[in-house]
Every structure is written in C-alpha cells, then in structure tokens.
Design a protein around this nucleic acid. Structure first.
Lengths: 187, 187
DNA sequence: ACACAATATGGCACTTGGTGTCGCAAGTGG
DNA sequence: CCACTTGCGACACCAAGTGCCATATTGTGT
C-alpha cells in the first residue's frame, strides 16, 4: 500500500492550483504573492515550493507530464509514418484535452510572466519530441524543424481561438494549420 | 548639439554588455550577480537597471530595435508579395547579421534563463510582424501562423548551426527551412 | 497497541533580481 | 554665471526562491 500519502499530496497540489488560479483571476498574477496562495490553501510559503518549483507552475502544473506522454505517443506511432503526419495525428488528439478553459488561456495570454513560462514549457516539450522523432530515424534538422513548426502551429491556433472568443472549431484550425505548413518531409 | 550625452550613454551601455558577457562566459550566468557586472563596469547596481531592464537584457540589448526594423522592412515590401515570401526575403537578410558569434549563442542555448528570454523576445517580435502583415491585408490567422512558423524556422536553423559547430551554411539552411514549410499562403 | 522511521510542514535566515525615492554632482543652455 | 535637466549613488524595500533545522504527523513492523 502506498497510495494514501500520494493521494493527499495530489489533493493538496490540486487545491493549491485551484486557489492560485482563483486569486490570479480576481487580483492578477503580479498582485498575488506566493504567500497569499499558500495561506489561502492553508499552508506556508515554504510548503508551496515543495509542490511547485515556481509561482507560474501553479498554473502549468500538469504540462510536464503531458509533454512526456506526447513524446511517448510519437514514439508509438507506425514507423513508416512521416514526421509531419505523425505530429499532426498526435497533437490533434491532444488539442481537445489541452484547454477547454477560455478564461485560463486569457489569463496566460494577458500575463507576460505566464506567457513566458508557457513558451518555456513548450520549448522543453519540443526537445523531447525531437528526440522521439530522432528515434524514428528522422534526421536532426528535419526533426527540429518539424517539432518547432508544430509548436508554432498550435500556438497560432490557440491565439486564433482566443480572437474568436472560443467559438472557432479548434480541430478544424489545427488541420488547416498543419495542412498549410505541410512541409516537404518526404511524406 | 545633442550628441555628447547620448554617446557616453551608449558607450557605458556597450561596456556594461561587454563586461556582462565576459563574466557570464567565465563564471556562468547564475553565478554572476548584477552587482558584479555593475562593479566591473564601474557603477552601481541601481545604475545597471537604468541601462537594462533585466539582467538577461545585457545579452540581448539590441534585439528590440531589430524587431522594430524587421517589422518595418516587412511593411516596406512590394504589396503583391505573399506573406511567406515576404518573411523569407526579410529574414534571409537578417540571418547574416543576427549572430556571427558562436560562443554567445552557445551561452544562450546552455543557460535556461537566457534561452527563455530569447523566446520571449522573439514572441514580442512575432507580435509586431503579425501587425505588419495584417497591414498588408493578410488575414489574422494566416499572418499569425506565418509569423510563428517563420520564427520556428529561424530557431531550428540556429540550433542546426550549433549542431554543426558553426560550419553549416546558414543562408542555405534558411532557404531550406522556408522551402520545406512553404505553406499554401496563396503563394 | 506501541515504538520507530519516514516524511510533510513551518519557521527562519539568506541571497538575489528588481523598484521607488531622494539628494547630489555634473553637464547643458542661455 | 545661473537655472535646469539628467545621470548617478545610496538606501530602503518587496517578492521569489533556497538551505537548514526543529517538529509534527503519519505509515509501518512487531
């Protein structure tokens, strides 16, 4: 048995994230101190940093795990598939899960520190995806370009989605973006 | 006459950047405090922040101006040119100027904080480029996608260049990247 | 049920990036 | 030579993040 402690830990983590998001929404990111968040969740600033490495990560908590899974899905795709189709297929699947919350995205997009952290996270994911593609035999430059372009595509889709106040069909946008950028990756 | 004060100001700024780069190279970015840099250049921490808004900007000092010029060049292109060719042409011209220094790029690439700041800067430039494209009549989503993809292309090129220890032909790489990603932007 | 070990927490001190303020010294312009 | 602007140092201050240690809490073996 090793599930009880982990469960409480995840519960605290979730509560912390919830409180953080709420405070950010009402007061703004910069106007909210880590101490405020911790207090609201019933613990100390010191403990906050045992759950999240930075203040920003209270918003992007599970993004790291997502990156790992994305890389794994890329690795698990049929070997004959080209890199671009591979990324298109995998990311299409994730697009739905990523952000149903318009308000959270607005918060991120309107807060430089959060926007920055998001770019950073995506950069890390890109690194993992490149390695996954490399394992499929894709040459480094092609892998790098494909991963970077795919990230750019998702980013553009997200912003377009915000521009239309969340009324656009995200899957359609993803398909459109990936089609427009369809590279000469063999295919 | 309004040149003396400005000249010393630019001189101090340059000296500050020089010292910063030197200290970063020998001690590492995180191990160098702003106070160290300021002292090395003969002034106070407070004054450092009158020349650069953040510690990272001592490395990326003139990037903002570049972004502005890029946007202007985009605006100044023949109106009938498609967005992708437009970006290709403009950025091709910049690629040479951007970084002849391998060591500086290595420093950036191996320092998370600097890498992050670079992503951030590019994101700002992307915003300006989008507006420039929009002024040319390119629809928002296309403009956004093109700008984001162009940024991704340059990033991939930069990394490939590092992979080959600076021996690759950057212009050729740029052309290759832009060709591979050639989108269906009308053309 | 009890003792023991593992672990979560809190408090504290400390470093560092970054900002507001104020007084001073120096250049600038008439 | 006299106002006026402007760069600078010094100081106080805030918040993010880290190391350290003492202590509570809880899971586990007997």
């Amino acid at each position: 048995m090793e599930g009880l402690r982990d469960r409480t830990k995840r519960a605290v983590r979730a509560e912390l994230a919830r409180q953080a998001l709420e405070l950010f929404a009402e007061r703004g990111f910069d106007e909210t101190t880590v101490d405020d968040i911790a207090r609201a969740a019933g613990l100390s600033k010191r403990s906050f940093f045992r759950y999240f490495p930075t203040k920003e990560d209270a918003v992007f908590g599970e993004l790291d795990a997502m990156g790992e899974q994305i890389a794994q899905e890329v690795a698990g795709r049929p070997p004959e598939e080209g890199p671009w189709e591979c990324l298109h297929a995998v990311l299409r699947g994730w697009e739905e899960r990523i952000n149903a919350q318009v308000d959270a995205m607005r918060l991120v997009e309107s807060t430089p520190a959060l926007r920055t952290r998001l770019l950073q996270k995506r950069d890390e994911v890109r690194g993992r995806v490149i390695r996954a593609l490399a394992d499929r035999g894709v040459p480094p430059f092609e892998a790098d370009l494909a991963a970077a372009a795919a990230g750019a595509a998702l980013d553009a889709v997200a912003r377009e989605w915000l521009r239309t106040d969340g009324s656009a069909d995200r899957l359609a946008l993803v398909d459109r973006a990936f089609t427009m950028l369809r590279p000469a990756f063999l295919s």
